[in-house]
């Protein structure tokens, strides 16, 4: 049942209630929009194996409840997260204003190196927009976040959001900025890379080339 992969990353999806967190996750995993979804209580899970820069990465995604009072519970889920999608709804300023609180949680409770991508969801509802692209991208820049506007309904930029986050983490591993061996990094080696690690370096390089073709 378990596939082989090079790395396992733990991801979080956080943000206020009704911003479409579960729908983003569903769109990413099932490739379709989730009609009639229940709201999330506590946490939900999803996982998918993706190919990023020639490496197979398994993403284990934790989708959290958005109502304010669940924050005291969801906080315990942050530990050991490598990446996070921080979601607001472009048609609701209230959800945008809450971003600072969510960011504080992520930065204080997850690994300090957590890679966060800001997602302005419901891009398809442009007529009801309350938050401009410009101001959100400025916010992202000030807080060192990546930024995309997404639509869980049409699927636009959903895949990109997850992949962009994964790619950044992978780059940081390759540049040595992130150490997967460190406790709480949110990154684990999969079977494939463990096997490679046990082989001498020269063979590893060869295997890598074979993988790329």
């Amino acid at each position: 049942m378990s596939e082989t992969y090079d790395f396992l990353f733990k991801f979080l999806v956080i943000g206020s209630a009704g911003t479409g967190k579960s729908c983003l996750l569903h769109q990413f995993i099932e490739n379709k929009f989730k009609q009639d979804s229940n709201h999330t209580i506590g946490v939900e899970f999803g996982s998918r194996v993706v190919n990023v820069g020639g490496k197979t990465v398994k993403l284990q995604i934790w989708d959290t409840a958005g109502q304010e009072r669940f924050r005291s519970v969801t906080r315990s889920y942050y530990r050991g997260a490598a990446g996070a999608l921080l979601v607001y709804d472009i048609t609701s300023r209230e959800t945008y204003n809450a971003l600072t609180n969510w960011l504080t949680d992520a930065r204080t409770l997850a690994s300090p190196n957590i890679v966060i991508i800001l997602c302005g969801n419901k891009k398809d509802l442009d007529a009801d927009r309350e938050v401009t692209f410009l101001e959100a991208s400025r916010f992202a820049q000030e807080n060192e976040l990546m930024f995309l506007e997404t639509s869980a309904l049409t699927g636009e930029n959903v895949e990109e959001a997850f992949l962009k986050c994964a790619r950044t983490i992978l780059n940081k591993i390759e540049s040595g900025e992130l150490d997967p061996e460190r406790m709480g990094s949110g990154i684990q080696y999969g079977d494939a890379s463990l096997r490679q690690l046990r082989q001498p370096r020269s063979t590893t390089a060869q295997t890598k080339q074979q993988c790329n073709c």
Binding site: A17, G18, D36, S37, N38, H39
Partner: peptide, 18 residues
């Protein structure tokens, strides 16, 4: 507001709340 938000996200599998 939160109640409103959750109304159509309650027992969605049940016909009466569909």
């Amino acid at each position: 507001r939160q109640i409103q938000l959750d109304l159509h996200r309650t027992l969605t599998g049940n016909q009466r709340f569909s």
